[in-house]
């Protein structure tokens, strides 16, 4: 299992490396667990989908479309809470869509 800090660090790493790494002003960007990822323009709509793919693979869970909400995805802290609240889907089991 992953603890909270570990999940937050992994998410921040991914966002920094994959989603904002190519930006010209990337080195100026600080990333905190409570930074609004969506309104600030840090992550665009394609970035959201790549982030979801990363979460599904790394934490072996399924993120159904109905869970793609602001309550769960506005910042790294809420995403972490969301990941912890979902029982991970084991390998080989069909993903539960709800």
């Amino acid at each position: 299992m992953h603890d909270r800090e570990d999940i937050e660090n992994q998410l921040a790493d991914f966002i920094r490396r994959e989603l904002i790494g190519g930006r010209r002003d990337a080195e100026d960007i600080q990333l905190h667990a409570d930074d609004d990822l969506l309104t600030s323009g840090l992550v665009d709509s394609l970035g959201v989908m790549r982030l979801v793919q990363f979460i599904e693979q790394r934490f072996e869970m399924s993120v159904p479309p109905a869970d793609l909400t602001i309550e769960h995805f506005i910042d790294i802290a809420t995403i972490t809470t969301y990941i912890q609240s979902r029982k991970p889907v084991g390998k080989g089991e069909p993903a539960a869509h709800g």
């Binding site: 609004d36 969506l38 309104t39 992550v43 665009d44 709509s45 959201v48 479309p65 109905a66 869970d67 793609l68 909400t69 602001i70 309550e71 995805f73 506005i74």
Partner: peptide, 8 residues
Amino acid sequence: AYTKLTAS
């Protein structure tokens, strides 16, 4: 934020 999270 709503334009990026379509369920919302």
